[in-house]
Design a protein around this nucleic acid. Structure first.
Length: 492
RNA sequence: GGCGUUGUGGCCGAGUGGCUAGGCAGCGGUCUGCAAAACCGUGUACAGCGGUUCGAAUCCGCUCGACGCCUCCA
């Protein structure tokens, strides 16, 4: 029997604002779509948090033995930079500045994106479609919406008629916005627009002469609107009704709201059962953003090259740090918080090593099943990774007691304990216990030689020499650890 | 201005109408030549003011603060 059959999973649905029991459209299978990045510059850490959150969701669904199709797009056609502008998109602009082909920009930053996510141990999605690869599908959808009278063409551009749509459907179901308010609030700003109403959004934009990324369409040469690609690709690969749609909180409006309208317009039904939104990662209490320069690149964390950091941190520590907060909470980034996470993470890793050498007993002094249930309960409650991690630290406590002979486990219980622990740490949270000691054989040989020399000095009660070796190594970032079995070292 | 989120002990960060979240730091202890590391033990905090309740940090109202969206943004 598949694991999901006895694990009732609850997911917070943004559209109903409640936790609901997760029941997929097709039993045993899950279709999940997550809005991917616009590849016009390096992904910053904030972007990464969203993708990591959904990577965790993907991993847990897989762990529950669902057959998951995870689709995450690459936006390579570029979003409009400014609606009032002449239709220059972000990728084209960057390309002109750097005097290179738009697809060169796309290629460069797609590689960067993949590299970073891989370092952070994110699983690749099942399908990673690109916007430029689905222009035909997007044009088909526009034709459909125009045919249904919910979009209009003007000067070679096509706009979605929000007011018309609102006559029979409800625009604003996700974000809780009232269309009347929107009318009120945007009237002043709108003067020269060719749109019928300010809240109408573009499905197709006419390309200005200098616009490089362009395609032919029934309405002339142009490029697709910025909300359409997700509707086209999610429908193509997951169908008109699928299980989970994810993205960052900031995409709720207008992006996801428009997606709902587009899908309702052409398919006559709401496209998604569960809307999930990951919250922002802040820096100095403010949202990370490229435009305000309030951001940090993942690469800078791994190398330590950023003035907000006291030292470099490994990808696993970054991942652990993020998993210690719930995906729907705002998480504030700081060097101190990462340092605290690093220590906690190391403690967990040490315990996992210790577990390998635990002795088996005739009886068990604690109930492994109870602990296991706690782990599942945490994850089943809207992917509560902080609680899961708290349970992991309970396990650490047990492991240390086992090591000291103050707790016991039978072979069967120990196997279950190890299997469950590994499943949650490696498979679900996606933490890698990389050997942080990046010590080469040569370094290890040299340090071990010094350790031996120090041991001789200590045997001779030559504390001056012994402490000298210890202090010098410490200054080089090599910390000696004395314990009963002897001395080991770690490279800090 | 509109929509929405949020305010937890030194720090990070869960959660809940009554029962120890957890991590880091601190403190005490074990260990050690001394340390470090490791391990064990240790914290009654929930912005303010009212209200509901036998009981609220948890529900309601107000005040103050923070943040997000309303323009591309994970």
């Amino acid at each position: 029997m598949s694991l999901f059959k006895n694990q009732p999973l609850k997911i917070y649905n943004s559209i109903t604002k409640t936790k609901e029991l997760f029941v997929p459209v097709t039993e045993g299978s899950v279709g999940m779509y997550v809005c991917g990045p616009t590849v016009y510059s390096n992904v910053h850490l904030g972007n990464v948090r969203t993708f990591m959150s959904f990577d965790m969701v993907f991993r847990y669904l897989n762990h529950l033995e669902y057959k998951v199709r995870y689709v995450r797009n690459i936006t390579d056609a570029g979003h409009m930079e400014d609606d009032a502008d002449e239709g220059e998109d972000k990728i084209a602009k960057k390309a002109r500045i750097e005097k290179i082909e738009p697809m060169e920009v796309v290629q460069r930053y797609t590689l960067d994106f993949h590299g970073i996510l891989e370092k952070l141990n994110n699983l690749p999605p099942s399908i990673e479609p690109t916007a430029t690869g689905h222009i035909i599908e997007q044009i088909e959808i526009i034709k459909d919406i125009v045919a249904k009278g919910l979009a209009y063409e003007i000067n070679g551009s096509v706009y979605f008629d929000v007011l018309k749509y609102n006559e029979t459907k409800e625009y604003g179901v996700l974000s809780g916005r009232k269309i009347e308010d929107a009318v009120h609030n945007t009237r002043l700003l709108d003067g020269q627009s060719e749109k019928k109403n300010p809240q109408d959004f573009a499905l197709w934009k006419k390309a200005s002469p200098q616009h490089i990324m362009r395609w032919s369409s029934p309405w002339g040469v142009g490029f697709p609107g910025w909300h359409l690609e997700c509707t086209a690709m999610s429908t193509k690969y997951l169908g008109e009704k699928f299980d989970i749609h994810g993205g960052g909180m900031d995409l709720k409006f207008p992006h996801h709201e428009c997606e709902i309208a587009q899908a309702e317009a052409c398919n006559g039904q709401s496209p998604v059962n569960f809307w999930m939104h990951a919250n922002m990662l802040t820096l100095n209490g403010q949202k990370m953003s490229k435009s305000t320069r309030n951001n940090i690149l993942p690469g800078e964390i791994f190398s330590g090259e950023n003035k907000v950091l006291s030292k470099p941190f490994s990808p696993s520590v970054v991942r652990f740090f993020m998993m210690q907060a719930h995906y729907r909470s705002i998480l504030d980034f700081s060097s101190e918080a990462l340092e605290a996470s690093e220590k906690g993470y190391n403690k967990l890793v040490e315990a996992l090593k210790t577990l390998e050498s635990v002795q088996v007993s005739q009886t068990s002094s604690f109930v492994v099943q109870d602990w296991e249930n706690d782990c599942y309960s945490a994850m089943n409650d809207d992917f509560n990774t902080p609680i899961l991690i708290a349970n992991l630290f309970e396990a650490v406590k047990h492991i240390n007691l086992l090591k000291d002979g103050k707790a016991t486990l039978t072979q069967i219980d120990l196997d279950l304990f190890t299997k469950t622990l590994h499943a949650f740490v490696y498979d679900v949270l996606g933490l890698v216990t990389e050997t942080t000691e990046q010590s080469s054989d040569k370094l290890e040989g040299v340090v071990n030689m010094l350790i031996n020399m120090r041991k001789q000095a200590r045997d001779n009660k030559d504390w001056a020499m012994s402490d000298h070796i210890r202090d010098e190594l410490k200054a080089l970032g090599i910390q000696l650890k004395d314990n009963k079995e002897g001395t080991t070292f770690i490279v800090e």
